[in-house]
Amino acid sequence: MTEPVLRVENLSKSFGALKASNEISLDLRPGEIHALIGPNGAGKSTLIKQISGNLQPDSGRIEALGRDVTALDTVARARLGLGRTFQISSLAMEFSVLQNVVLGALGARGRAFGLFRNVMKDKALLATAQEALTRVGLHEAAQQRTSDLSHGQRRQLEVAVALTLKPRLFLMDEPMAGLGASGSKDLTAFLERLRHEAPILLVEHDMDAVFALADRISVLVYGEVIASGTADEIRNNSEVRRAYLGEEEQA
């Protein structure tokens, strides 16, 4: 078996009496999509934040791309090759779409201390930015103001910014949310191709997308991984049905 790209070991994080992460262990292997599902409040976002470096775990360790990154901050982890998309869009809303992607390209370059050259005339940055926009299908909206984008377009832009970083693994927090049926179908097809560039740890509520894409699925309930396995194993797991899928079917 190839060495996993990301390995989370016994990760715990509490907020007061609430155990948001309880001894979580999981890994992400090259070329795979590992989906993380669970009801609201199960601790999915808390886990993603710890992996991306926004939150420090109370205990446990995180290894990414062969390095122990537990003590590194968000910036260092991003430099290492973690590409993240947010559940709630965190784009620069006053910028044009193109400026947001150029910012990503600038980050990939690793320094932003040029003081006098017009950054929007930097050919190398623009090429990277345009390529990323084209790949997610947003190139025609390049000059629009980001705050004028639809919810779905913002999602696409989130992915485009992550692409400019040429990450070696993706953390995607609900990229399908609010996309609509055809939008999530497009994105599903896109992620299916993207996995070959870098594996994806995918938090998603859209079960059609999860079962279509995921090689493995981990189910998180009350901060604990109650099951982990292939799509079929998860679908037939009685505990999962009771805790999560079953509830949805009844609802």
Binding site: V75, L91, A92, E94, V119
Partner: peptide, 25 residues
Amino acid sequence: VAQSAFGLALSAARQSEERVETVGL
């Protein structure tokens, strides 16, 4: 300066701090 790489990143940090961190700046 406002149009430079530094200006773009600084302005982005004002609008969304976590965005700038996530791109590694």
